[in-house]
Design a protein around this nucleic acid. Structure first.
Length: 281
DNA sequence: AGCCAGGACAAGT
DNA sequence: ACTTGTCATGGC
């Protein structure tokens, strides 16, 4: 359906990367509930931690500036992280044939699905269950500060899985994750031991991938879909949370149109953001 | 103050 | 196979 080798325009300048595209909104992408470690300061700079480094960005119209990053690191890690190999222009044009999606897209333009670290995504969405986004962010920051490596002032990497695998439940108490803490330990142990492996997860039949992820305690159908969508490039994954369930019952009682299903997860993210922000649904 | 949150699990029909 | 109570915590 979409081109396999789409390329987004960029240049390097003074040690920064400057991306040019009409389909990239920093606020909508970084604050739509898929990632939890980004925030905007009062000077319009978005700052966060991803793929083991602090990253600072700014949007000026259709240009996205990634400060202090060389081309190697950009091409090897963040080009894929920001999903710059997907033709959002063509995809959103397809989605816009549907009236509800068209409205949602106009409301929250420029959402992109990030390709995040898998272990971090497992933890993040375990923390997310029966929880609100504000508190999820707090839990994750405490988790990183307590167990991650310091990379600069007040900035900590996401803790490595092998470190968490050998913690006691009581060690996680200051994270204040509640009943989810035991799930984090179980996830770390199963991933660290290889009982749950990410190898081939991006290409294996999606039902196999779901089944494997759900071997982790605390990973049910919804969290599994989030992991597949937000860290494995499985755009057909379709997380059903309370917001999307409302959208579906109101606007799509017979399910999402078939022609969108290969990219249903991306459509889902526009619908989620629209529903959550407007509270109209 | 009380309801709700990017749910999952276990026990009960 | 479906339904229900329970699970910590704190945002609003």
């Amino acid at each position: 359906m979409l081109s396999d080798n789409y390329k987004t325009e960029y240049i390097t300048k003074n040690g920064d990367i400057i991306i040019t595209t009409d389909n990239f909104s920093l606020p909508n992408t970084l604050d739509c509930g898929q990632a939890f470690r980004f925030a905007c300061n009062n000077k319009n700079i978005w700052s966060g931690v991803a793929l083991g480094r602090k990253i600072e960005m700014e949007q000026k119209g259709n240009k996205i500036i990634i400060y202090n990053m060389d081309e190697d690191e950009f091409l090897n890690k963040f080009y894929e992280y920001f999903n710059l190999d997907l033709d959002y222009s063509a995809l959103l044009q397809l989605f816009s044939k549907d009236k509800t999606l068209s409205t949602a897209i106009k409301h929250s333009t420029g959402i992109r699905i990030l390709k995040q670290d898998k272990w971090e995504t497992v933890c993040s969405f375990i923390f997310s269950q029966n929880n609100n986004i504000k508190r999820i962010k707090g839990i994750i920051e405490r988790f990183c500060t307590l167990f991650g490596d310091k990379i600069s002032d007040d900035v900590y990497n996401f803790p490595p899985v092998e470190r968490i695998a050998y913690l006691e439940l009581a060690d996680l108490e200051p994270v204040r994750a509640g009943f989810r803490a035991k799930y984090i330990i179980d996830a770390a142990q199963k991933i660290n031991s290889g009982q749950v492996s990410f190898e081939n997860i991006e290409s294996m039949p999606i039902d196999k991938a779901r089944e494997m992820l759900m071997k982790i305690k605390g990973v049910g159908p919804k969290v599994a879909e989030c992991i597949l969508l937000f860290s494995c490039k499985r755009y057909e994954a379709f997380p059903l949370d309370v917001w999307i369930k409302r959208v579906m019952s109101t606007y799509y009682p017979n399910g999402l149109p078939q022609e969108f299903k290969d990219y249903g997860g991306i459509a889902q993210q526009y619908l989620f953001n629209y529903a959550r922000n407007t509270k109209l649904i």
